[in-house]
């Protein structure tokens, strides 16, 4: 196995790219995808540590993160569709009032 630092470095780079994506994009769907990228990079770090310490608990966490991500995507995309219906836009700059 390669040093676990390699995987952690890659995970950090992917997480940073996800953060930058959330900050620079205005399309709420792409912001959502960037969040998925960040979750995925955290999963990579979990699996790398599971291999390093030879404990399955890290892989269990990945399993639960995947479930949470699936639930989050279902609810989040439903929210985006509902917002699109009322505001006719998914640009986060247009979403500046809480009133529906």
């Amino acid at each position: 196995m390669l040093p676990v630092g390699y995987y952690l470095g890659l995970s950090a780079v992917l997480f940073t790219l996800g953060t930058v994506g959330v900050l620079i994009r205005r399309n709420s769907i792409i912001i959502f995808m960037s969040i998925e990228l960040m979750l995925n990079s955290a999963n990579l770090a979990f699996v790398a540590f599971a291999r390093y310490y030879q404990a399955l608990d890290g892989q269990m966490f990945v399993f639960f993160v995947m479930t949470v991500a699936a639930a989050e995507v279902a609810v989040g995309l439903a929210l985006i569709v509902a917002i699109f219906r009322t505001r006719q836009s998914i640009n986060v700059d247009d979403l500046n009032v809480l009133k529906g």
Partner: peptide, 30 residues
């Protein structure tokens, strides 16, 4: 990468849940 790290079950779940289900949902909404 998961396969390289001795996590075959997680790798298959990744492909079926993330690349399969979640991204299909994304594409559907797009």
């Amino acid at each position: 990468f998961y396969l390289l790290l001795n996590a075959p079950f997680i790798a298959i779940s990744q492909v079926s849940v993330y690349a399969g289900a979640i991204m299909v949902l994304f594409l559907f909404v797009i």
